Computed example of a mutant assay.
Amino acid sequence: MKPGSNDELRDKVVAVTGGARGIGFETATQLFDAKARVVIGDIDGDAVGKAAADLGIEGLELDVTKPESIEAFLDETEKRVGPVDVLVNNAGIMPVGPFLNYDAALIRRTIDIDLLGVIWGSQAAARRMVPRGHGHIVNVASVAGRLPMPGLTIYNAAKAGVIEFSDALNAELSESGVNVSTIMPSFTNTGLISGLETNRYIRVVEPEVVAAQVVATIIKPQARVAAPRSMGWVNSNSIMPQGLKRRTRKMTGLDHIFLQYDDSSRAEYNKRIGQ
């Protein structure tokens, strides 16, 4: 049985950020198939318009780095579809490469989108949900928030922040009727990993796998879950001895995979994220 096939999601209003591509679009697709009332937002106005038209849902331009844009997105969602039951904070970018090569603008942009965008979105949604006594905020982080790796320093920092922020907010809102969940995808077959050389140790999944976990978590809220669930071991990484971490990174290729990549294969994605 597919998540949502027995009507748990029918007519729930779900807003998805970063919904024009990848995990966001697949999440919107699965929610739509489960009879939810879905609205997607994305900074790429043309892409979100096409994605929304393809699904037959509402699509709105959204810049998650601006709190006023998020407020406008939720206001317009409620105007067109109804009060938001679930917000999926999915928008994110993943720059890779040596830390010393990052310029200030890219560092700030990554934190603004990957961490502050989640915080602004969560606050805007919670201010609507708490007075109603129900709601669900689903924040898409990454296993990278638990697996620090060379070449992913800023992304690691942002996603670790999302995980801890979400845990804290879930605890704070626990008596309000509003749930906060964190989804931690493994490396997913989207533009984020273009130009990277994966291997048998690097678990890469399709967007459908991550989206299915998002949908399952909306149906049955959990504070934190990996996608796929088999990657849940990453939560224990912080207690591993440093020597073991170094040996593991070397054995799996995680010591260099995000430092060495094919420039031409990654060029389109890098241009899109401003790297």
Rank of each mutant, 00 (worst) to 15 (best):
P83S: 15
V88A: 02
A126F: 12
P67Q: 07
I57T: 14
L106A: 07
G121P: 06
G82P: 04
R127S: 13
I107F: 14
A104W: 06
E61Y: 02
I70W: 08
A91E: 02
A105E: 14
S122K: 05
S122W: 06
E58K: 11
D85C: 08
L62N: 09
R108K: 15
A124I: 04
E71K: 15
G92E: 08
L115Q: 10
S122A: 15
G56V: 00
N89V: 01
K66Y: 02
S122Q: 08
G133D: 03
L100C: 07
D103I: 10
N89F: 02
G82A: 08
T110H: 06
N89A: 11
N90Q: 02
P95E: 02
P98Y: 06
V88E: 01
A126C: 11
Y102W: 14
G59W: 03
I119F: 11
V64L: 02
R132M: 10
A104H: 12
D63Y: 09
F99Q: 02
L55C: 03
Q123R: 15
D103P: 05
D103W: 04
D112I: 00
Y102I: 05
L106H: 04
I111F: 02
I107R: 08
A105V: 09
P83C: 03
E78M: 07
D85W: 10
P95V: 00
V118P: 00
R132G: 12
V88G: 01
R128F: 13
I93K: 05
G121C: 10
G92W: 03
A124W: 03
L100E: 15
I111P: 00
G97Q: 13
L116W: 13
L60T: 01
I70S: 05
D75T: 05
N89D: 08
M129S: 06
E78G: 07
S122G: 15
V64S: 01
V64D: 06
P67K: 12
W120Q: 02
L74H: 14
D103E: 11
A125F: 13
L87G: 04
S69L: 11
L55A: 06
E61C: 05
L55W: 10
V96R: 15
T110I: 04
K66Q: 11
S122Y: 08
F99A: 14
L62H: 09
V96N: 13
P98E: 13
T65E: 05
H134W: 13
Y102N: 11
A104Y: 12
I70D: 05
N89P: 07
R127C: 14
A105S: 14
G59V: 04
E58A: 09
L60M: 11
E76L: 13
R128E: 09
A104D: 12
R80G: 01
Q123D: 05
D63H: 01
E68F: 01
A72I: 00
G82E: 09
T110Y: 08
D112W: 00
P98M: 03
R127M: 15
G121R: 08
D75N: 15
L87Y: 12
A124S: 14
H134R: 15
G97I: 10
F99L: 15
V88H: 09
I70K: 05
G56I: 09
V64T: 00
